[in-house]
Amino acid sequence: MDWHILAQQLVNGLTLGSIYGLIAIGYTMVYGIVGMINFAHGDVYMVSAYLTAICLAVLFSFGIDSLPFALLATLATTLLITAAYGWTIERIAYRPLRGAPRLAPLISAIGMSLVLQNGVQLSQGAKTQGVPSLIPATLRLGEGNDFVQITLVQLMIIVVSLASMAMLTWLIQRTSLGRQCRATQQDRRMAAILGINTDRIISTVFVIGAAMAAIAGVLVTLNYGSFDFYIGFVTGIKAFTAAVLGGIGSLPGAMLGGLILGLSEALFSGMVNTDYKDVFAFSLLVLVLIFRPTGLLGKPEVEKV
């Protein structure tokens, strides 16, 4: 094994891991605040990939050739519409179920996931879609045949994810909204008694989660170029694995879990077998849940008797 292959896998893994981390935020925040797995979250990410491609295609058809402007406009539009998806899903499928039997929100979430997947399939067709390669610039480290290649998009993914994470951490730790979120997460009833509009906070959390998924969707689409209506399912489970790995409910945990999962998956597919990389990721999920259900940074849960 040459060093450059290993380094290349590390770069790929870091990119993949940042994406998992961004999507994992949606799972971890929603789980932290309402205690449910938002099964439709992966599909929200899938919708954002479609929105990216649609936005770019529309902008180019209007003859806009300034790439930075096109990218920013796409990011803004995708962010807005995906966030609206997050808000609407919570409003339609989860809010009426507060206080329903335990399985109800979970089943409703699966229903929502089916609706999104199939809705997109019905309107956009089942075939794989794509965007043209827009930013071909790459950085090459090394000489001759032994080199490590980092595309500009990969660099962008890592920088943008870290920046989003930093902003979100600031939002949660330093602002009044963040304080309200944390209070609602600790004790929803008490927060409501203190005058926090917990319904609004829960909506906000869904919106934030969807926005993070939208950022991931834009970046992934720019990087890999192709997607279909089914990507949300597999990526969703993996991002959830990342959230569990880092400790569900913990924001830095989501990012850490994402990076670990991305790196180990890239190393596995580079050194062992590409066909079984999904099996590897899912097995990791099962093993983590069995041996360390609180994850790396999660707090141990004390059973309420």
């Binding site: 339609i92 499928a93 009426p96 179920l97 329903a100 039997p101 109800a104 929100p105 089943i107 409703s108 699966i110 229903g111 929502m112 996931s113 089916l114 609706v115 999104l116 997947q117 199939n118 809705g119 019905l122």
Partner: peptide
Amino acid sequence: DYRVFTFGVLMVLMMIWRPR
């Protein structure tokens, strides 16, 4: 083609309307 879509809608509606 609308089969899965309808199932999804039904699952959500059932949980809201009659979770049992």
